[in-house]
């Protein structure tokens, strides 16, 4: 799935966050969004993920202009094509690991326990075997990020948007996240990563440097 941003500008609460930025996301490629804090990395990631509307410029997904996309179409994009990995894990703390992993295709509650068996191989891959029914709030930070990865794996999305996915993780967990993201690109997914992690940046196919607008 190809996403192209041309000369886009974004203002939030009256403050210009992005101005005339160009970006291209290609299947099978990892794109690192880099720059100092406040340079708009997360905003650009959210723009490419259709979470934040653009002020000017064009943003296309598979050649289709998205500016006039209605809510249902954006939702369909999130449901069928995109997966998000957040710095704060993006998990529902009071729900179980299985619930969070199966979120995009959540079965009715009476079938959840039975269907949780389908995600066991994924949980094993992220080092959380036998933790499917545990509450997320009881997990450590690194474990939570692994649940986030498991969810992205379960979805087998066309595009993965990762916002500071390795921040505040130990080396083992950082390696696990990096391996996952590169593996997803190898699978054919387009991967966009907003990060300060130099190791991760070095292993990405492309990098887009953003400058601080306050500098």
């Amino acid at each position: 799935m190809e996403i192209v941003a041309s000369n886009i500008g974004v203002a939030i609460a009256g403050r210009t966050v992005l101005e005339d930025v160009n970006a291209r996301v290609i299947p099978g490629q990892t794109l690192a969004l880099v720059g100092p804090s406040g340079s708009g990395k997360t905003t650009l990631l959210n723009v490419l993920g259709l979470l934040v509307p653009i002020g000017h410029g064009t943003l296309t997904v598979e050649g289709q202009e998205t500016r006039r996309w209605r809510d249902a179409r954006r939702r369909a994009f999130w449901q069928h094509h995109a997966a998000f990995v957040f710095q704060d894990y993006g998990l529902i703390e009071e729900e179980s690991v299985a619930y969070n992993v199966m979120l995009s295709r959540l079965p009715p509650f009476w079938r959840r326990r039975r269907e949780a068996s389908k995600i066991l191989p994924i949980l094993e891959r992220v080092g959380l075997p036998d933790r499917a029914q545990e509450r997320v709030s009881a997990l450590s930070g690194g474990e939570k990020q692994r649940v986030g990865l498991a969810r992205a794996m379960f979805r087998a999305a066309d595009v993965i948007f990762a916002d500071e996915p390795t921040a505040s993780l130990d080396r083992d967990n950082r390696d696990l996240v990096t391996a996952f993201l590169l593996g997803e690109a190898d699978r054919g997914a387009a991967v966009v990563i907003a990060t300060h992690d130099e190791d991760l940046i070095a292993r990405c196919d492309e990098r887009l440097e953003l400058r601080s607008r306050t500098a």
Binding site: L51, R75, Q79, F84, L91, I92, N100, L103, R151
Partner: peptide, 13 residues
């Protein structure tokens, strides 16, 4: 709000 955000970005209506 956290639940809403996660569910919405997972494509829930």
């Amino acid at each position: 709000s956290r639940r809403l955000f996660v569910q919405r970005t997972s494509g829930w209506t």
